[in-house]
Every structure is written in structure tokens, then in C-alpha cells.
Simulated assay, not measured.
Amino acid sequence: MSDDKVEALQQRIDDMECKIAFQEQTIEELNDALTQQQLLIAKMQDQMKYVVGKVKNMDEGSNMSDPSKEPPPPHY
């Protein structure tokens, strides 16, 4: 092979190595972002369960304080 061909092939190899390194860095950053999002989603799900529980408790408590929803007294 001529020196020009060897040099061209070496340049292509260098370019591919650079692209692979960039892709590995990008994949690592995406993995980190995905991990953080999963943790945030899990935290938000826990918070949502808490809020739903509070709302259900408020609904149950409001049924007793609303006179129209209370059973009539025994003399009726």
C-alpha cells in the first residue's frame, strides 16, 4: 500500500475512534438522566399516593359533616 492510502485509512480509524468515544459519553449521559428521571417518577408516585389517601380521607370526613348525607334520626 502507498503511504497515502495508509494515511487515509489511519485518518478514518481515528475519526471512528473519536465518534465511538463521543457516543459512549452520550450514552453515559443519557443513562444518568434516565436514572434520575426514574427516581423522580418513583418519588412523585409516592407523593401522589399520599395525596390520594389524604383526599379520600377528606371525602370520608366530609360525608359525616354534610347534614344531607347523614341518616335521618330514629323518630322519622
Rank of each mutant, 00 (worst) to 15 (best):
Q45I: 02
K54Q: 05
D4C: 14
M64V: 10
K69P: 03
F22H: 10
G61Q: 09
E28T: 10
I27W: 12
E24N: 03
A8M: 13
M64H: 13
C18D: 06
E28S: 09
E70R: 05
Q10W: 05
L39N: 12
D3S: 13
I27E: 15
K49T: 11
L39A: 10
E70G: 08
L9K: 14
P72K: 11
G61I: 05
F22Y: 03
P72Y: 06
K43P: 00
M1K: 15
V51Q: 00
P73M: 10
M48V: 04
L9F: 02
D3K: 04
E7T: 11
M44K: 15
I41V: 03
K54V: 15
R12E: 08
L30T: 01
K54S: 09
D3A: 15
Q37G: 04
A8R: 04
N63C: 14
Q11M: 02
M44E: 13
Q37K: 00
K49Q: 15
N63W: 15
S62T: 04
D66G: 06
M58T: 13
G53N: 00
Q38G: 04
T26V: 10
M48N: 00
S62W: 13
K19E: 11
N63M: 13
S68Q: 12
K69I: 01
V52G: 02
V6S: 13
P74Q: 09
I20T: 03
P74T: 01
D14S: 07
I27Y: 14
M48I: 09
K5C: 02
C18W: 02
L40D: 05
T26H: 06
E7L: 07
Y50V: 02
E7Y: 08
K54Y: 04
M64E: 13
A21C: 02
A42C: 07
K5D: 06
M16D: 05
L9R: 04
V52S: 07
Y76V: 10
N57Y: 12
I20K: 06
Y50N: 08
E28N: 01
I27F: 09
D4Y: 01
K43S: 08
Q36H: 13
Q11K: 09
Q37D: 01
K69C: 11
Y76T: 11
M44G: 05
M44D: 02
D3V: 14
S65E: 15
N63A: 14
G53Q: 01
K19L: 09
A33W: 15
E60W: 01
D59I: 15
E28W: 01
C18F: 09
D32G: 15
Q25A: 12
E7C: 01
M1Y: 11
D59V: 06
D32T: 12
L34V: 04
I13P: 01
A42W: 07
I13Y: 06
E60M: 08
C18T: 13
P74H: 00
T26Y: 03
L9M: 08
V55H: 07
Q38D: 12
A42M: 09
V6R: 10
Q25L: 03
K69E: 08
E24D: 08
S68T: 15
Q45T: 04
M16L: 05
